[in-house]
Amino acid sequence: MTTVEEKAGSGGGRVSKEGLRGFFREMLLIRRFEEKVEERFRAGELPGFLHVAIGQEAVASGVCAALEREDVIASTHRAHGHSIAKGTPIERIMAELYGKVEGCSHGYGGSMHLYDVEVGNLGANAVVAGGIPGIVGAALAFQMRGEQRVAVAFFGDGATNAGTFHESMNLAQLWKVPAIFVLENNGWAESTPAKQHLPLPVDELGKRALAYGMKLIEADGQDVEAVYLAALAAREHALSGSGPVLLHLRTYRLVGHYVGDPQVYRDKEEIKKTKATKDPIELLRARLELDEDELASLDAEVMAEVEASVEFAKAGTDPKPEDALANVYAPARKMDRGGLHA
C-alpha cells in the first residue's frame, strides 16, 4: 500500500491570466450573491435560515472548474457557491431561496437543499456528512457502467468526525470507486473550533486519508489556482482506476455559521486578521493587479446579475399549497409479468 501526498502549491502559473480573471469573476459573483442573500434575509424576505460561505469561494470555483458537466456533486448546508460554480444559473438559486416554482428545487428544498440534476448537482445536504455515502454509490454506478465520470462530495472538517464519513472513505477506497472527497476545512464545526473537535492539528486533518490508504492531495483553499490544479489531479487519479482521493483544502470562513450569528465564540481580532489576510477574492485581485476602475466595472456587471436574480425570484410563481404532496413518491411504473421495462 502506498499513499502519495501531493502539495499542488500555487501551480506555478499554469492557469492563464484570462483563466484567473474568469475565476475572479465567478468568485466575485458568488460573494455578491451571498451578500445579497444576507441582505434580503435580514430584510425579512427569505424564509427559513441561511448559511453563507463567504471566504470559501475559491474552493467552490476551483473544484467545480476541474469537473465536467456529467460529473456529479453533493453539497452541504453551505451550498450557494458550489451550486453556482457547478453551473446552476443564479436566478434559479435565488428563486429557490424565495420558495418559488422557478427555483432549482422548485421551492421544495430551500438554501440547504439546492438540487440541479441537469448540471450534476445531486443536492445539498442539511445533515452534516449525510451526502457523503451517496457519492460513493454514484461513483460505484459510474464504475460499474464503465463511465468516465467522477462523483464529488463536499464537506467540512466537522463532518470528518461523523461515522458516515469514515464508512464512506473505507468503502470507496475498498472498491476504488471514482470519487473525490473534498474536505473544505474551515476549522470550525459550527461554533466549535477544531481544537475542541479534532485530536490532531487542524492543518493535518488530511492525514485521515492515510488511515484508509487513500490518495491525499492538499492545497491552499484560498488560492483558486492551487485548488483548481489539485482538483484536476484528483479527478485524473480518481478516473485512473487507482481509487478515490481526499482533496484537503484549508480554507477560512470569514463570517458566522449562519446569517445573524453574532460569533460570540470567536475572537474579534482573529476575525479581523483573517478577513485582512485570507480573503481569497482580495488575494486574487492583488495577484491580478486589477486596478480600481477594472474592479468597479466588473463589480457593477456582477451586481447587475445579482440584482436581476432578485427581480426574477420576486416575480416568480408561488407553489400551490397542495403541491406539497406532489413529489413524495415517484409515479408508479407500468409493470408486466416477466418483463418490467416501462
Binding site: 445531486l122 455515502p133 460513493v136 454509490g137 460505484l140 454506478a141 460499474m144 462523483a151 464512506s168 468503502l171
Partner: peptide
C-alpha cells in the same frame, strides 16, 4: 460489504439515483 450499514444504504441511494 464491510460492516457499515450507513455506507451500505447510503451507497445504495447514490447508485439508485444514478440509474441502478
Amino acid at each position: 460489504t464491510p460492516i457499515s450499514e450507513m455506507a451500505i444504504v447510503g451507497s445504495g441511494i447514490g447508485a439508485a439515483i444514478q440509474g441502478m
